[in-house]
Amino acid sequence: MESKIKFSKYQGAGNDFILIDNRNLHFDSKNEDLIHKLCDRRFGIGADGLMLLQEKENFDFEMIYYNADGRAGTMCGNGGRCIVAFARDLGLIHDNTAFLAVDGIHKANLNDQLIDLQMIDVNEINRDGDAYVINTGSPHYITFENNLSDLDVFNAGYTIRNNATYREAGINVNFIEKEGESGYFLRTFERGVEDETFACGTGATAAAMTIALHENRNGQITIPIRVLGGQLYISFFKEGFSFTEVYLKGPATFVFEGTI
């Protein structure tokens, strides 16, 4: 007889995730086909990724992240905020937390439905022609665009992600456009999902760093970035090519729960 899996669904600016409390280690995390099926929007629950919340000594919890294709993923910023909300709803944490993810320790503060998640420091910036290539826990290719609302992000992103440079390891492809006085609009093609998503937290973080580099800004900076699924805010302290005290702020919302 097949076992039942209890799950919760959360979304952060339209980036949606399946969350499973796996403190008892009952979930078969090696089963890529199962994870892929659960994330399938027609045959499963439907999500951009799946996360397991597990116990970890000296931390509130550990975040184990899987892409929608079933494979273990790199850091996911919107997912990080969602698992913090999940941990709060499970009663594990209250106003703040420190948890472990694949790229190290993350701290987060919870206030007014927005979650401020600390991201890793970044000291290495690469270029690919006019584009910037930055790893913010996941690798990102960032380029500026005009008329971004008209861009065919799927085909433009697919082409770059599958070119000779990035085909094997894959990369997330981000397109940014200035909006108004201080805002920016971001659209992202995500590897692992292999499609455009409504938001990408590590992508928004990389995009904000690109903007600060491009505009030669230094010091304490906050950059608002609009994505298809909502509004994110990225703050950091920049000195030359070094980014510290990096925080990704945005919503993380419970959608529904069930068993499958």
Score class of each variant (00 low, 15 high):
Phe144Met: 10
Glu190Arg: 05
Phe185Tyr: 13
Cys200Phe: 03
Glu177Asn: 09
Ala131Gly: 05
Glu181Tyr: 10
Glu177Thr: 06
Glu194Ser: 12
Phe175Met: 12
Pro139Lys: 13
Leu151Arg: 13
Gln118Leu: 05
Asn172Lys: 13
Tyr158Arg: 15
Phe189Trp: 15
Ile176Glu: 01
Ile125Leu: 07
Gln118Phe: 02
Cys200Thr: 04
Tyr166Ala: 12
Asn111Glu: 10
Asn155Cys: 09
Asp121Thr: 06
Gln113Thr: 04
Gly201Glu: 01
Gly170Ile: 11
Gly129Cys: 05
Glu145Thr: 15
Gly157Tyr: 07
Tyr132Glu: 01
Glu196Tyr: 06
Gly201Tyr: 02
Ser182Arg: 10
Ala164Ser: 11
Tyr132Phe: 15
Pro139Asp: 14
Ala131Thr: 02
His106Trp: 00
Ile160Tyr: 00
Ala164Arg: 12
Arg187Tyr: 04
Gly129His: 02
Val133Arg: 04
Glu124Cys: 08
Leu114Cys: 02
Val153Phe: 14
Arg167Phe: 09
Ser138Val: 07
Asn126Cys: 08
Thr136Leu: 10
Asn172Tyr: 13
Glu145Pro: 01
Ile134Gly: 02
Asn162Lys: 10
Asp103Glu: 01
Glu124Lys: 11
Ala169His: 08
Asp103Lys: 02
His106Tyr: 00
Asp112Gly: 04
Asp112Lys: 09
Ile125Trp: 01
Ile115Met: 02
Ala108Val: 03
